[in-house]
Simulated scan of single mutants.
Amino acid sequence: MLYLLRMVLVGLNFLFVGFVGLIIGVLRPFNPDDNRLFGRLYSHPALRILGLKLEAEVGPLHDQPPGCVIIANHQSNWDLFLLGTVVPRRMACIGKKSLKWVPFFGQLFWLGGNVLLNRENAYQARRALQTTSRVLAEQNTSIWIFPEGTRNPGETLLPFKKGRFRWPSRPACPSCPCV
Rank of each mutant, 00 (worst) to 15 (best):
R127K: 15
K162W: 04
Q107A: 09
V179N: 10
P168G: 06
L157T: 01
K97D: 12
N140D: 13
L117S: 01
K96Y: 12
G95Y: 01
R134D: 11
L158E: 02
V179A: 13
G149V: 09
R126E: 12
N121S: 11
C93M: 15
V102Y: 03
L111E: 01
G113R: 00
N140I: 05
P159S: 08
G163T: 03
A172G: 09
S169P: 11
Y123V: 14
E148P: 01
F105C: 05
L158V: 01
I145L: 15
T131D: 13
L117Y: 00
N114F: 04
T150D: 10
R170M: 13
S175Y: 08
C93Y: 06
S98Q: 15
S133H: 12
R166H: 11
S133Q: 14
E148K: 02
T156K: 14
R127D: 13
R151W: 06
I94E: 00
R119P: 02
N152P: 06
S169L: 11
P171I: 12
C173G: 07
G113S: 05
F165Y: 12
P103C: 08
T141V: 15
C176G: 03
F160K: 07
G113V: 02
E155H: 11
F104Q: 02
P168S: 09
P168F: 07
G149C: 11
C178L: 06
C176H: 12
L136R: 08
W101L: 14
R151Y: 09
L117D: 00
S133E: 14
T132E: 13
R119E: 03
F146K: 00
V115R: 01
G154S: 13
W101Q: 07
P168L: 06
I143A: 05
I94H: 00
A128F: 06
W101K: 13
R134C: 04
P174R: 12
G106K: 05
S133I: 02
V179R: 14
R127T: 11
L99Q: 08
F160Y: 15
L116Y: 02
E120Y: 08
G112I: 00
E148M: 03
P159A: 08
R151N: 08
G95P: 01
A172D: 14
G163Y: 11
L99N: 08
